[in-house]
Design a protein around this nucleic acid. Structure first.
Lengths: 316, 316
DNA sequence: TCACAAGTGGAATATACGTTCAAAAAAAAG
DNA sequence: CTTTTTTTTGAACGTATATTCCACTTGTGA
């Protein structure tokens, strides 16, 4: 790396580049400056990764197609930029190596190598910053936004780990079976559970699965039971202060012989007794507040699995 | 990097090198193996950083002066080894470039470049940990619900790790400041972003923060701009197929001088240019489907942090 | 539709790179 | 002290590299 810093031609080119911005005498001054101190950086070069990102963001609006491609790839794979060669990166981003150089120059660098140094610096700095941040999170009382986030992220990771290791896969499979066999999937969830079912409503809908999101606008919920056919299924999510309305609705539906798949936070939940299958999720919490990240992970998996199963059955 | 993997002379050299250890017919077998599969690694190459470190320490007892110098430098400055060139590292460690190559060969590598890859892998981190487990999941059962869940859980854990690694804490703090200083917080998010804002609506509401969830039922969205006061703030979430309506709404609101906090998946998002602060989240994905677990983790943190900040200001 | 600008692709180029090799130096064995 | 083996050195080498340049294509305003 850093193949161009001391090469003659590169400097000449960079001066050409700046000529469009700076008056002639300033260029001469710059040449003098460069000959004096080859380590000097131009005033237009982003000094660190954050400002580089900011510049990409502002310039992306007026970028042509291929350079935008570079921008997207660079932001999505900063590590690849830091360690790869122009040829490797170019083929991965589906552009020409020269485009990569032009991209770097558009951002203010002399060439690709100079930009690469920023990505390398970020890569090195990140590791030390990470451990530093972690210890800061662990020792401090969680009152800064950063430490609150760190706390949740750590706990969520742990919760996901628990999900992986002690999740009832059989229950999951039976749930997928019930849901993918249903004509319509009715979705019910209030309060903290509402985002979960609205997400399922959107994602399943995008995959062509017929869903019905049961909104709760007053006491008319229980009247809807009659619209649920025996070929349908009910997916119900409910968490700790379990809404009696939701439980009652599920109970009535279950009583009619409709499969009820429930997502809840404990097998002691009242919903468990009126469900054909129960999916249990332990969520990360911070004081009285619980996240939804584990639940959302499970919800996404359910959506994809149901979509998959439907595709198979509809094809055969 | 990796300049020697395909070069003829290097392979010849490596064979010479192994001749001292292996009987002749084994060498011939090795040649045959190499011609069959050029990606194959010798059985003697440390596969990761940890085993490399172990080998260095065992071999250091019987190392001559200059190689020991290399060993000390490599263990003390792994980042330099990962990113530097032979010339740079050699002069820093006060040895010849060729000594560096000999050092790598002593450890079992073909040359310096091959050893450098191990150091690079270590720098990027998470290499062995996550990707290994992911491939294991992928090759075991491709389409069972359990494996889909496993896939999402692993990816979500990695995404949470990335969130910790490279999250812009300063942007988060400024966002919390803007939101906690607002009289009303207006929430906007469609499609996949809707669960996020509906969750914030619920959680912030529970903490006594005044929020207004902007529902999009027809084209009446832009008329609502006038109801947003300059003492308010807008929180807007939008992901990859960015809704033009949402962007336009945010743009108009931002144009009126109202703080706009945006949550999106890339700084290249069009929303970034019309926001006072941008929160970037890289979500786990499986094919075309992305989860929301990382986003929900961040959303929860935002809610708690805003609630905290409000409590402090309202008490004083 | 034309002219003009902006952007792109790909071959050409100089060079910095990892690696090799043979001679010199140092260490070990006799 | 001499011989033999091991280790180091530094120049030479072929190659992969970042960069440049120009013909070509694409977009744009009259």
């Amino acid at each position: 790396m850093d193949r161009a810093r001391f090469s003659g031609p590169a400097s000449v080119e960079s001066i050409k580049f700046y000529r469009t911005y700076i008056a002639n005498f300033q260029v001469l001054e710059y040449i003098f400056f460069m000959t004096q101190n080859s380590e000097a950086i131009s005033p237009d070069i982003p000094p660190d990764y954050e400002s580089l990102k900011a510049r990409i963001s502002t310039l992306s609006g007026s970028m042509p197609k291929r350079l935008l491609q570079c921008a997207r790839y660079a932001l999505a794979n900063p590590d690849k930029i830091a360690l790869g060669t122009t040829a490797e990166i170019a083929s991965a981003a589906d552009v020409q190596p020269s485009t990569l150089v032009r991209f770097a120059q558009t951002l203010g660098f002399d060439g690709f190598s100079q930009m690469q140094q920023i990505f390398q610096g970020h890569l090195v700095g990140r590791n030390s910053e990470y451990t530093e941040r972690l210890t800061k999170i662990r020792e401090s009382g969680a009152n800064t936004p950063g430490s609150i986030l760190g706390n949740f992220a750590e706990r969520s990771k742990q919760a996901l780990d628990d999900l992986l290791h002690q999740f009832d896969t059989v229950a999951l499979e039976r749930s997928i079976e019930a849901l993918s066999g249903a004509e319509n999937i009715h979705l019910l969830g209030l309060r903290r559970a509402y985002p979960v079912v609205s997400y399922l409503h959107y994602t399943l809908g995008k995959m062509g699965v017929r869903t019905n999101l049961l909104e709760y606008t007053g006491g008319i919920l229980e009247d809807r039971v009659q619209f649920i056919s025996e070929n349908d299924a009910l997916f119900v999510a409910t968490f700790n202060p379990y809404s009696p309305d939701v439980v009652e609705f599920a109970s009535k539906t279950f009583g009619r012989g409709v499969p009820v798949v429930s997502l809840t936070d404990s097998v002691l939940s009242p919903i468990a007794r009126v469900s054909s299958t129960v999916l249990e999720v332990n969520e990360a919490e911070h004081g009285a507040f619980r996240s939804l990240s584990t639940t959302m992970c499970l919800a996404t998996s359910i959506a994809v699995a149901v979509g998959d199963a439907r595709k198979w059955t509809s094809l055969s």
